[in-house]
Design a protein around this nucleic acid. Structure first.
Lengths: 203, 203
DNA sequence: GGAAAAGTGTTGCGTACGCAACGGAGGGTG
DNA sequence: CACCCTCCGTTGCGTACGCAACACTTTTCC
């Protein structure tokens, strides 16, 4: 039991989880995350309540497993700036970032709620932590993290992470006024500019 | 096995059937009824193919079971004109008719295909036969069917049934330009006028 | 306050379903 | 013709799930 992340070949398992995730998303949009009960979810998903506990410990666990999609989408961050190289005037946004923004667009109603007042603070925190982690990873790949001695690196990370979430929030609360690729490109430009600016200051 | 119409308490059974009906509707809209295979349906519904045959003999059977909804919606035809009474200028449409039109509206994309060139002729025939049956039932309730000796009653039934379908087709192919209640009222007015006219001619 | 109701989390047993495999009927392509 | 491929329809076995019931905690309401 509680075979959490892994492959789960059985069609019944995949279907059941999909139905419950779908129910969670719909219900979150309708009444906010806090007011949702396990009974609500299983009712909507046409699944017995006991089955819920075979897969998840609670609704937060279900939410976490939904977030795995984000990890998958951004898991392969192939592209990064070669060390010491100047930033070109026009960036092509990394594939992972475009995937992420497209994913947000697909579930925009859900994210609008979850990142807002009727959402879950823990969710926002987890998203922030993951974004920070990705940025930290990026800096490691750039082999530049050691140079930054003047400006605290954690300040920089918190800064760009919150900024990225801010851009996403603006985007979904204004009904995605630009394409995902456009937003991803801007996000990439701004965050890279911030990072490079911080590194310049540190030199 | 093959417990066709009945209650089917088990949640798994109801869910499985619902998922397959949903898949059928979606696929019909996407590629037409003729091109759908059992594999397509089970794939979309996230159900094993063998499970399909536990519930239905083929896709036509699945389609038939979807039509049961129509029978349920129109099953209780409470209101009908008292015999010999004059038709009032403004009708209130029968509940069953309003329910039917609302149901068509809910699945309008599906009916648009099914009643059109990419649909199934047998489906249209079944709808027509059912509508005829309802009209025949109505005439029996009005206790007026015996009076019609000049005009063949089957001609009248075929006339008003096809006319009703025609109105529905116009309605869904023009994106429901009026409310279901409005359409139901018109349908009721016209068909009742036709029936009474035929009866007058027979007198 | 105290009772009723709603929500959580767990259990054993029966069953609907997934899986793999089968044979068979078209239906195109060399 | 033989060959492959798709789709159909069925079967036996193992398993995920539904159901009912349970104790417990938290909410709601008079």
């Amino acid at each position: 039991m509680m075979n959490n992340v892994e492959d789960t070949e059985d069609l019944r398992v995949r279907r059941t989880r999909k139905l419950m995730q779908k129910a969670l998303i719909e219900l979150t949009i309708e009444k906010g995350f806090a007011d949702i009960t396990v009974h609500d979810i299983t009712d909507r998903a046409m699944v017995n309540r006991s089955t819920f506990y075979r897969h998840f410990t609670d609704k937060y666990d279900l939410l976490d497993q939904f977030m795995l999609k984000i990890y998958e989408l951004t898991g392969h961050q192939e592209e990064f700036l070669p060390p010491g190289e100047e930033c070109p005037a026009v960036y092509k946004a990394p594939v992972g970032l475009v995937n992420l923004v497209q994913h947000v667009q697909t579930y925009s109603s859900f994210y609008r709620v979850m990142l807002g007042e009727k959402g879950d603070p823990g969710f926002t925190q987890k998203v922030l932590q993951y974004v920070e982690k990705r940025f930290r990873h990026l800096l490691v790949n750039m082999e530049l993290q050691s140079k930054s001695t003047v400006l605290p690196i954690d300040l920089l990370l918190s800064y760009v992470s919150h900024a990225g979430i801010g851009a996403i929030v603006w985007w979904i609360e204004n009904d995605q006024p630009c394409s995902p690729e456009q937003l991803a490109t801007w996000l990439n430009q701004f965050s890279m500019a911030d990072i490079n600016h911080a590194l310049d200051a540190a030199r």
